[in-house]
Every structure is written in structure tokens, then in C-alpha cells.
Design a protein around this nucleic acid. Sequence first.
DNA 1: TTGTATGCGTTATCAC
DNA 2: GTGATAACGCATACAA
Lengths: 336, 336
Amino acid sequence: MATIHDVAQRAGVSPITVSRVINRSGYASQETRERVEAAVAELGYVPNRLARSLRSKRTHTLALVLTDITNPFFTTVARGVEDTASDAGYTVIFCNTDESENEEKKYLQVLLQQQVDGILLVPARSAPDSIDLIRKQHTPVVVLDRRVPSGVEVDTVRCENELGAYQLVRLLIELGHQRIAILSGPLGVSTAEDRLAGYRRAMREAGHAAEAQLVVYGLFNQASGAEMMRQILELEPRPTGIFAANNLIGIGALHAMQEAGLRVPEDMAVVSFDDLPPTLLTSPFFTVAAQPAYEMGQRATQLLLARLTGDASAPCQEIILPTELVVRQSSGQPRG
Amino acid sequence: MATIHDVAQRAGVSPITVSRVINRSGYASQETRERVEAAVAELGYVPNRLARSLRSKRTHTLALVLTDITNPFFTTVARGVEDTASDAGYTVIFCNTDESENEEKKYLQVLLQQQVDGILLVPARSAPDSIDLIRKQHTPVVVLDRRVPSGVEVDTVRCENELGAYQLVRLLIELGHQRIAILSGPLGVSTAEDRLAGYRRAMREAGHAAEAQLVVYGLFNQASGAEMMRQILELEPRPTGIFAANNLIGIGALHAMQEAGLRVPEDMAVVSFDDLPPTLLTSPFFTVAAQPAYEMGQRATQLLLARLTGDASAPCQEIILPTELVVRQSSGQPRG
DNA sequence: TTGTATGCGTTATCAC
DNA sequence: GTGATAACGCATACAA
């Protein structure tokens, strides 16, 4: 492989001059410039960023650590991150933790070793530990999608989970439902907890009894959604409305209801958090609180880039974006 | 940041000894080992992979260059790549080219500068140019999903596109359809061309006229699918069967048909290439030729890793996986 | 406008 | 078993 020395030799200049021409830093006469560029072309010279990074202490690489890129919400977030980073000349490394703290730790170790310039983190559980780990290496970090315990100072981009959930449940209540069950995500994950809180507030305000059996906990995936729904279907009397804490849970629930011969929304109304990309449903069906996934990725990346290029000690920002209530068929008509 | 020197000093040994302990290379007495490990822990030392890579000429990083990660087919491929790479101790950089040759070139330049150990490429168009560019840096490359011109020697993993398409169209023919239109992907993309070839073979064998107007070209996305479908709906007489060259085109077509008040499969039968992940459709509906997306990512990564760790000059492999014909509702019942 | 000396943090090579 | 030295490829500081 040709190095900067080879190019320098060929062009009859010193390596540093080549460096200057390539990076457009410092001066270079027109003639020198041309000679260098010719040599670069002839030798097919490709600068070694590793060496550059070692020297400059900048890798121009960001990392996005999330739970599962095949969840369409995160896929869209990832695309927002990638586009924004790429425009600014950064590349992005993706890691899937599958909600495992251990995987998260392992990935963070590797990423820090790689000297990534910054990390976008969807924390699996104990955000503070991970944030500490990252901060020890003086690496900027932005927490995405999930809330961190109060008192932890860190840039954050997330949605109004409590309010979005409240609005969804409120809608069901206004449509005349009284017994509404929630298929919740895992305890310990802030999005699950906030959505549960929104559900509880709506129920409380409407004066509906807080029945423990109407709250079921599971994971943010389809299998768990189906499982939770089967549990709910055992109840006597059955709830008439279901709040699924995310899109995958909602889909799983729908399948369980189909198995049981129930129609949605005629027999049971369903609302869920997180929209599905319009490309993915043959006919948009779910009533949802939609998060601006792409924008979340975008904003989080902008925040991170600002830390890198600007003031690293500026006060932390907490960007909380609104969800959009999108009413479709699954929530049904007002009950008689 | 603590360096290997700091650790060495603290442990009262030389840097190279620290290196040996950390990398489990070479000998070290039990006592030395313990002292070093203690020093590492006390200082919170994190090895700098940049420096290591500069010296060892290995970054343990792979790149996956694809057209669009939000296409669920590629999302699943990506997950297969990431899991496989991660198990082998590699991290993965993702890049979206949006089918642009220019973007592809730009990304490849950056990746080669980053000294990635290997590249998984879904070529936008002129695969040979990109392969040359990569090979000039002696970087191994595996072509994923798409065919390269014959004569180009390169490891490849893809599906039987022609056969999968043939089977889908054949199915429509057996159901009694005669006028079948194809909503094709872009000319110049091998998957689009092979699927078109499969369509043509099935039609020819069945003795159906080769009507030019039954073949429409577009892009592999939903908007284009809807657009092509609107064009087809203008035809007199209308075709009774539609072959969508991928899932997004199929969904777009479905929307266009709904707009026009047509029911599927009653008024028109639809089959399409590429399955949608089971999580994403509320009720599986499309009859498809399903590609084993996760396995494709897995196999391609294995091939690449084999090049890295094994014989770089072994003859190239071409892995061609079968598609699975999955018959669901959208293809309808036999016509009277 | 261009060049020299030096160091980034690690490991390969050879020596003890 | 352990260490000294040099080198990976580039860019910073300073000098000319």
C-alpha cells in the first residue's frame, strides 16, 4: 500500500506537504498541489485514517447502541442517525443489545477501545453504570428513547411517553370503555414505566377501579404480546379495551385475538404505542401514539455532534418530543 | 487517559509485558500477571485499538454497504451480519447508498481509509468498478444479494431470483391467469433483471403473448410500486394477475388498487418477491417468494471471515440459496 | 510556501 | 520470563 511517503517521494516534496494538500490545511502553491494530486492518482493512494486518528485523536466514528435494529421503530431511528452522521462526515457503528445489560457492557468496552468519538445509547437497564463507563473515557454520550434516573446529568432525546399513553387510554375511555387492560413492557425500562403511568393516570381521572389483573408485564416483542393477551382473555368479565405498550406487543395481541376468534375493533378495541412505518402495513389499521423516530435519531445525533465540535461542558439538554395521536380503525366506534 | 505505559509503570514492568498479559500472548509469571491486572483495574485502563490496529494492520471491523436499511429484507440481512460478526469479535459499520453509485463510491473511499478488514457489498450498479476499488487496497469483499457480470471473480451470496420469480408467475398461471403484469425493479440491478427473466420464462412456457405493456419498470420502493400500478390500471383489458418484483413494490401496488376500489385477490391476484417479517403484517397476506434474509447475512459474513482468517487466495465461492414459495391469500383461488 | 523533528499508543523483532 | 528498540502512517510544533 502506498503511504504518504511514497506520494511525497513521487511528487518530489515532503510528506507534510502532501498532508497539507490532502487535508486542505495550510498553504500550497498551485504547482505543488498539482504535482501532489497527480502522484496521489498514479499511486492510488488512500490515506490511512487509523494513523491520522491516532495523531489527531478523532476517529469520525459514532456508535449507536440499541436493543434491536429489526424493531421498525429503531430501524427508522437508525436511519435518522446514519443520515445525519454521514452528512457531517461521520460513520456509524450499530450494536444490538437485546435488552441485555451484559451485552451492552461488552459492546461499550469494544467501542471505547475503538476510540469512537461519541455514543448514542438506548440503555438496556442501568443507564447510570453505562454512562459512567463511557464518561470515564471522556467520551460524549447521548441517551436516546429512554429516561435516566433524575440526578444523572446527560443529554437526552426521548418522547412524551406518559402523555402519549394517557391520550391513547383517554381515547378509549371517551369511546365508552371502562375495563381497559394494559399489556406493558418490562419493569425497569423507563418507556414501559412511563406508559404505564399514563395509563394509570387516565384510568384514575376517569374514576375507573385500579384492578391489578388489568396490568400485565412482558417484553417489547410480538411473542410476549401474544402471551400477555392470552392471559387477559382468561379474565371474567373480559376487558373491552386493550392498550399495547408498543407496536410489537400490539401485533402479538392481535394474533392472539384472532386465534381466539375475536374481531378487532368489534369485539375488542386496541390502541398501541409506536407507529409502524407506512410501508409495512397493507392497510394502516392501528390507532397509535406515533413517535417521530427519524427525527429522534436526527436530533440525538445533532446533539452529539454539537458536543464534539462545540462546547463539551455546556449544560446538558433534555429534548422531549411530542407523540402524535393517530386514530385509525383498531380503536373502533363509540360504544352504545 | 491511561496508556500502556502508565500501567507498566504502576505495575513495575515494561509496556510489552503489559501487552502480553492483556492479549494473553507470550508468557508471564502468575505474579506479574496479577500485578498488571491490578494496575489495569486501578487506572481504568482501556487499550487503544487504533494504535494496536496501526501496528497489527487489523481493525476487527467489517462494513456492510447496502441500499436501504429500512427495507425489512435488508434489516434482517443486517441483523444476520451483525450477530455473526459480533460472535467472531468484529464490529460492523453500516452504510445506505439509496441505489446511488456515487454514494457507494464515497462510502467505499471512507471505509477503505478506515482500514476496515472486509466489506460486504450490495452493489448499486457497476459492481466491477466498486470491486476494483476495494481490491486495490487488498481488502476482501463479498457481494451480497446481487449478481455480478460473469467473468468477475468474487465471493457471492444471493438467491435464486430467476427461479423464485418463475415459480410465482407459474402459480398465477396455474390458477388460471393469462394476462399477468410485472412491476419490475430498475434495469441494471441484477435482482430486478433476474426476476423479470423468471417472469418471461413462465409466460413463454405457458404460451402467453409477450406484451410489452405488461412490463413496467420502476424502483424498489413503495411510491414506485403505486405509480407502476396506476399505469397498469389504465390498460384495456386489465391484467388479472400482478407480479411485484419486491415487497415494497407489492405494498405500493396494493395501495394503488385500494384507491381504485379494487379488491385483492377477488378483483386482481397479487404475488411478490421478498417476504415481510411476520412481526410486520397484522395478518400475513402476501403470496411471496421468501428469501432467507438472516441466513444470507450470516453466510456472507462467514465467507468474509473465512477470507480474513484463512486462505485469501482460495477460489471464489458463489453461494446461491433457494427461495421459499409461500402461498397466502393475495394470490387468490383458481379462476373459473 | 515548504521542511525537520517528534510523538500518538501499540506491538514485532530481537536480545537477555 | 522479560525488556529495549524500532516501526506502523500521519500530523503538530516549530523553523526556515
